[in-house]
Design a binder for these strands. Structure first.
Lengths: 335, 335
DNA sequence: CGCCGATAAGACAACGTTGTCAGGCAAGTG
DNA sequence: CACTTGCCTGACAACGTTGTCTTATCGGCG
C-alpha cells in the first residue's frame, strides 16, 4: 500500500536511485537503454514524483502554490475574484488553496499561520481583521501578500481595491438627482472596511447636496434575509424612504425582494453596489454601481506573481474605478 | 532572507534541535526553563514549523490537504458545492485546493497528476473526462476520490449525484400537464453526462405522454448568451415552442433573458433545472427543479473524509432527490 | 600502446523534520 | 553507599528527493 519511491524504481530497474532521479527530471546524461528501463519500472510500479521531498532539497524552496482567502466563496463577488485569480495562476502552473473567512478574524490568523507552515509562495486575501501588522514579519521573511477589496492597516503591502467612496457618492447623487431626499442605505456591518467607505460616500454626497443625514435611514445587514427585513421595517416606518442605496450584492437581493413583496418595485427607487447577474431580468432593471471583480482579481494575481518572480518595487496601491449602470430602478423619480 | 530552521532556533536557545522539535510539537519531557528559552528563540527568529519536512518524516504520510476540481468556480452551483465542501474540511483542519476544469479533459488529467505529486490526501471532482479508468491505479495506491454531479465511468469509486433523469421527467411532465405539446429543451453539450441524463428524462416523459419527439426543439448551449440566442431562434422559427425546459442554471438565465427581450415572459412557460437565487424576484417567478448543491457538497466531503479516516466500505453511490418548486413560469397554460 | 577527454553512472551529503535510542543526572530504595 | 528508577536531553538515522563529487568506461589520438 506504500507508494513506490525512487529507490523502489531503481531496484526494479537495476540502477541507482540517482539515475531514476535524472530520468524523472528529464536530465541529460542517461543512456537510451537505461532511460527505457527506468520508464518501464516507473510505469510498472505506478511511481509518482514526490514534490514535497523535491522542494525540500531543491535549492529554490518554491512550492508552486498560493492561497486565496476571501469572504465567502459562495458569494458571486468572491467567486468571481477566485475565478480571475485562478485563471492567472493556471498560466503559471500554480496550485491555489482557497477558503472563506466569513469575517472571522481568528480564522484569518489561524489560516495565515497554517499557510506559512506549508510554505505557500503567496497569498491574496480579503482580510477579515482590522489590524494587519502581524503580516509584516512574514512579508519580511519572503512571504508575498496582496490584499484585495480592503486596504491594509498598520502594514504596507500591495493591494487592489475599488473606489468605494466615489461609487457610493455616485449612487447617492444619482438618487438625489431624481429628486429623492429620504434615501435609505443598507450596508454590511461597520467593522467591514468597504461598508464604512460606502457609508462615507453616501454621507458626503448628502452633505454636498445640503441634505441632512438621518441615522434612522441607515441599517446594517449581513444577509439577504436581514436586508429584506431591514427594508421592510423602513417601509413600514412613520417617515419611510423614497429610495434605497443597497451597498452590497446580497443586500441588493434582499432589497429587491422586500420591494417586490411590498409591491413597491415601481415606486421606490434603488441603486445597488455590485453588479448582479439578474439585474437586467427584472422590471424595472436594477441600477447598479458595477465593480469589475474579474479585473480586481486578475490585477491582484498579477501583482502577486510579479512579487513571486522577484519584484522589489515599493508596495503598489491600486484603486480601480467603478461604473454606474442605469437600468430603471435608479431612475424612478420621487412622486 | 532564508527562513530560520530548528537548528537556528536551537543555536539561539543553546539547546539541541531535537529539543526544539519537542517544544514546537508540544511534546512532553522538556523542563519548564528550556521550554521558555526555546519559545523565546522561536519568537525572536520568527521561526515557522515546516509541514512539508514534517510530513516527509512523519510516519503517517498525511498532508492534511485535499483538492476540489469543479466545472467553474464562478458558477453559483460550483461555488455552492465548494462552499459546502470547505465547511466540512474546515472542521478537520484540512486545506482545500480548488480550481475549475472548464470541461477540459486534458486539464483534468494534468491536475490529477499534479495533485498526486503533491500527495494530496483526497480529491472531490466533477469530472470533465468521459473515462475515469486512469483513477484506478491511484485509488489503489491510497489516493481517495469522490466524484460529484457525474458518475464514474470504467472505475468504481464513491460518488454523489442527483436524480437528473427523474428531475428532467418531472419538469417535462409539469409542462405537459399545463397542456404544452411543443416543449423546447436547451441543455449543456451532450458530452456532459448530466446533459445526456436530463435529455433522457425529457424524452422519456414525452414518450410516456405519447408526444412525438422533435429534434428541432432541442438545442445545446454552453453559456447564458448562447442559450439566449438559441431561445430567440426557436421563438422566431416557423413552428415555435410554447414552453421551454432549460436544463442548467446559466441556460435558465439566458432563457429568461430571451423571453423578457421578446416580451413573452407571460406567454411562454418555462421550467429550469437548478435553483437560482433570483428566481422569486421575477414576475412570473421561475419554476425550477431544485437540486440541493449544499447537500451534495457536504455529503461528498463526508464520504471523502470517511475514506481518509480509513473506511474500506465498498464504493458508495449516492443519488439525491430533486424537488420541483412552482413559482409561476412553469404554470403558464398553453393558449 | 599509452594517455586524455568525454560521457555515463553511482556514492554520498544535504534539505528540515521526526523517531529511536542511549547517556546523564537526581531522587528513591535496600 | 551502591543500585535502581525515572526524567531530561541530545546524538543519530531516516523520510524521498536533488546537488556535488568521484569513479568507471570507452573512443580517439598522438
Amino acid at each position: 500500500m506504500r507508494r513506490a519511491t525512487m529507490r523502489d524504481v531503481a531496484a526494479a530497474a537495476g540502477v541507482s536511485f540517482k539515475t531514476v532521479s535524472r530520468v524523472v527530471n528529464d536530465e541529460p546524461g542517461v543512456s537510451g537503454p537505461l532511460v527505457d528501463k527506468v520508464q518501464a519500472a516507473v510505469a510498472a510500479l505506478g511511481y509518482r514524483h514526490n514534490l514535497a521531498a523535491r522542494s525540500l532539497r531543491h535549492s529554490e524552496q518554491r512550492t508552486a502554490s498560493m492561497a486565496v482567502l476571501l469572504q465567502d466563496l459562495s458569494n458571486s463577488f468572491s467567486a468571481q475574484l477566485m475565478r480571475a485569480i485562478d485563471d492567472v495562476a493556471r498560466e503559471r502552473d500554480l496550485v491555489v488553496m482557497a477558503t472563506s473567512l466569513d469575517e472571522e478574524e481568528e480564522r484569518e490568523h489561524g489560516l495565515v499561520a497554517n499557510l506559512i507552515k506549508r510554505r505557500v509562495d503567496g497569498l491574496i486575501m480579503m482580510p477579515a481583521s482590522r489590524d494587519h501588522a502581524y503580516l509584516q514579519r512574514e512579508v519580511s521573511a519572503g512571504f508575498h501578500v496582496v490584499l484585495i477589496d480592503r486596504p491594509p492597516i498598520n502594514v504596507d503591502v500591495d493591494f487592489v481595491v475599488v473606489d468605494n467612496v466615489g461609487g457610493a457618492k455616485q449612487a447617492t447623487n444619482h438618487l438625489l438627482q431624481q429628486g429623492h431626499r429620504r434615501i435609505a442605505v443598507i450596508t454590511d456591518e461597520v467593522r467591514v472596511a468597504t461598508a464604512r467607505q460606502r457609508l462615507d460616500g453616501y454621507r458626503t454626497a448628502l452633505a454636498e447636496a445640503g441634505v441632512e443625514y438621518d441615522g434612522a435611514l441607515v441599517r446594517a445587514a449581513r444577509s439577504r434575509e436581514a436586508a429584506a427585513e431591514a427594508v421592510q421595517e423602513l417601509l413600514a416606518s412613520a417617515n419611510p424612504p423614497t429610495a434605497v442605496f443597497s451597498a452590497r450584492n446580497v443586500i441588493t437581493e434582499g432589497t429587491a425582494l422586500a420591494l417586490r413583496r411590498a409591491g413597491l418595485s415601481d415606486r421606490i427607487a434603488m441603486v445597488g453596489f455590485d453588479d448582479v447577474p439578474w439585474a437586467e431580468l427584472l422590471s424595472p432593471g436594477i441600477t447598479v454601481i458595477k465593480q469589475d471583480a474579474l479585473a480586481v482579481g486578475r490585477l491582484a494575481a498579477e501583482l502577486l506573481l510579479s512579487r513571486m518572480e522577484g519584484s522589489t518595487d515599493p508596495p503598489r496601491h491600486q484603486v480601480l474605478p467603478v461604473q454606474l449602470i442605469p437600468r430603471g430602478s435608479g431612475e424612478i423619480q420621487t412622486s
